[in-house]
Design a protein around this nucleic acid. Structure first.
Length: 261
DNA sequence: ATGGCATCTAACAGATGA
């Protein structure tokens, strides 16, 4: 089974790229982030035509996640509160979470908040959101031991996940100690990084800033991840970053990452 | 030291992203 994650930075703007990519890379499930569209306007027929079932939760202008699957998924839910009924509904105002089950695997597709700047209001929200995510995963693990958690985490866990021209890394959003600590705490529930099972090298990134010719100079960050629970980790056979879509005209600033198990 | 690029909007400038 092949599962891909891709922050497309507007599914409508990137529609042709995504459809072409799926035709060339017929993965079992594609997890999209930053769809930036309300559910009624999601271009679902374009994906259904090429053989995908479409599961979405979106909003106007910002955020939005989707699962595109060749087989129907079961137990699809959106947001945190569908699983954690006790938390405040404010945590689901931003559409960042969707999950569903295929065979014996639960796919959790996430768009983690960016956080803007360290110690800003948005940064505090990001840290709070990650605490809620931890509770959410704890609950899911009670009934779903096999989880493939993927998406745009907006966090690079290690310095080797970041190009060498970033100064003051520990004050930088996506690399600050509190963010890394929050993600590490989550991974301690039993998740491991699929990409690092197969590749230890620096220089492998999934996002490059649109500015300053960052992609041409490979000044990127690895912030899009697949995290696997132990049985899936043992079944994994590859995890690769496909940089090809980043080279197209008007690309997303992220590129797909694909895990196979 | 700053802004650089891209996307969205009851847009035409400002918020957001990372």
């Amino acid at each position: 089974m092949r599962i891909a994650t891709w922050n497309v930075n507007s599914v409508r703007t990137r529609l042709e790229h995504v459809v072409n990519w799926l035709n060339q890379n017929p993965v079992d499930v594609l997890c999209l982030q930053e769809t930036k569209v309300v559910d009624g306007d999601f271009p679902r027929s374009h994906f259904e035509t090429i053989g995908y079932h479409v599961y979405i939760t979106g909003q106007k202008s910002y955020n939005g996640v989707a699962l595109l699957s060749r087989q129907p998924l079961t137990d699809v839910t959106t947001g945190f509160t569908s699983i954690l009924s006790e938390i405040s509904p404010i945590w689901d105002e931003q559409k960042r979470v969707i999950t569903g089950i295929i065979n014996d695997v639960r796919i959790v597709n996430l768009y983690v908040p960016n956080g803007s700047e360290v110690d800003s209001e948005k940064y505090t929200y990001k840290l709070g959101w990650l605490e809620i995510l931890q509770q959410y995963l704890k609950k899911l693990l009670l009934t779903s031991p096999n989880i493939c958690m993927c998406g745009d985490f907006n966090i690079a866990l290690e310095d080797r996940d970041i190009h060498e021209n970033v100064s003051k890394i520990d004050q930088h959003i996506m690399a600050s100690p509190k963010e890394r600590e929050a993600l590490k705490n989550i991974l301690e529930l039993g998740f491991s990084d699929a990409f690092r099972q197969f590749n230890q090298e620096s220089g492998n990134y999934s996002w490059w800033d649109y500015r300053t010719m960052a992609f041409n100079r490979n000044r990127g960050w690895r912030i899009d991840h697949h995290y696997l629970t132990p049985q899936l980790r043992d079944r994994a056979t590859s995890c690769i970053i496909d940089v090809a879509p980043r080279k197209l005209e008007k690309p997303s600033d992220h590129t797909p990452v694909i895990v196979e198990f």
